[in-house]
Design a protein around this nucleic acid. Sequence first.
DNA 1: CGGCTTTTGGACTTGCAGGTCCATTTTTGG
DNA 2: CCAAAAATGGACCTGCAAGTCCAAAAGCCG
Lengths: 201, 201
Amino acid sequence: MTRALTRKGEATRARIVAGAAAEIRERGVDETRLEDVMARTGTSKGQLFHYFPGGKEELLLAVAQHEADQVLSDQEPMLSNLTSWPAWLAWRDRLIERYLAQGVTCPLNSLLGQASRRGPGAQAVVTGLMRRWQNAIAEGIRHMQSTGDIAPEVDADRAAAALLAGIQGGVLLLLSTGQIDHLEAALDLTIDSLRVGARTA
Amino acid sequence: MTRALTRKGEATRARIVAGAAAEIRERGVDETRLEDVMARTGTSKGQLFHYFPGGKEELLLAVAQHEADQVLSDQEPMLSNLTSWPAWLAWRDRLIERYLAQGVTCPLNSLLGQASRRGPGAQAVVTGLMRRWQNAIAEGIRHMQSTGDIAPEVDADRAAAALLAGIQGGVLLLLSTGQIDHLEAALDLTIDSLRVGARTA
DNA sequence: CGGCTTTTGGACTTGCAGGTCCATTTTTGG
DNA sequence: CCAAAAATGGACCTGCAAGTCCAAAAGCCG
């Protein structure tokens, strides 16, 4: 049931997902028609519904998954190596740089606010992304605690939750107002507050 | 050109905006049809286009404006009176309570991520909302600095930007994952960090 | 090679939601 | 009370985009 794709089929499917993702990044979800995807990827309607029998919804879900993975891997290897203050700054810089570069073109901007409405599948994708993201941050905090660079009283998960919220809000404000100030302020001030009272070891 | 609405007309127009706002809150923007608004508000298609010649887009803009104002007035009188730590906590509690109550039902969730795509009008509405919001917070910080409750070295605007980002991100995460933890953590930790090094006066 | 499955192309159907139009009723102002 | 303006109701039009269908081409495997 699941195995019925030849190598060529696999390639075509991937091309559709990538093309749809690009199209959505450029024009937004609700401005993207199946026809646009077909044109960009050089495919036909028959192919779209062959690889995504559930139609647009199923395609959108695949794109969301694809983009969610991208968001995290774009932060590597920094995100998984928050083991010193310079490493934290490097991660911070990467985030700023990346979002500044892509500007309004956020892969899942339209997904975030409407995840709950787009059905349980989309919700799961977003929730999973956020969970992995927050876990990586918390892991970094715990490592810094083990080296005495962050006070042991800090609740790593709670601090990670706050930092993640700051990032998401910063990006949201970048998307809506075009200013990156909020993202910078949130990152810098939150990270700074982690340094306070360090060096206890 | 602008004056051509009788009292009755004014009332009908307001009813349409309020009804559309409610419908959008419940079902989301792209799931809301003009017909739904008509049914809910007991109006006809003729009326809709009479009061909003620009069609759906113009109506949406009016709704956005309406909801943006609502967001701020819902935080009053706390937001304009951040003059003591208990006042800050009261404001914090109001935010939590409010967003917890409305859950997934955020009036402009779908607007935020797509403001730039919905045209300059929507962008202006969102930008204006955020600017007013951030200003009110910064005002509160400055007042606390004047009473010596917050250290004078703190950059009020920058801190307000970070706090606002935390709030927006917290709400976003509430909407996408259903958990209010992020909003709580962002509010509490950011406000706490403002208290550090206070009492200098 | 030869039958099978997968892949592909694209014409066609369909439903629907936004928008147009005009006839009718109500309100306004003198 | 009457004309003009505003408010209302609802039938109708139209375009579009998702989804269906099938027939033809290309690949796979004995």
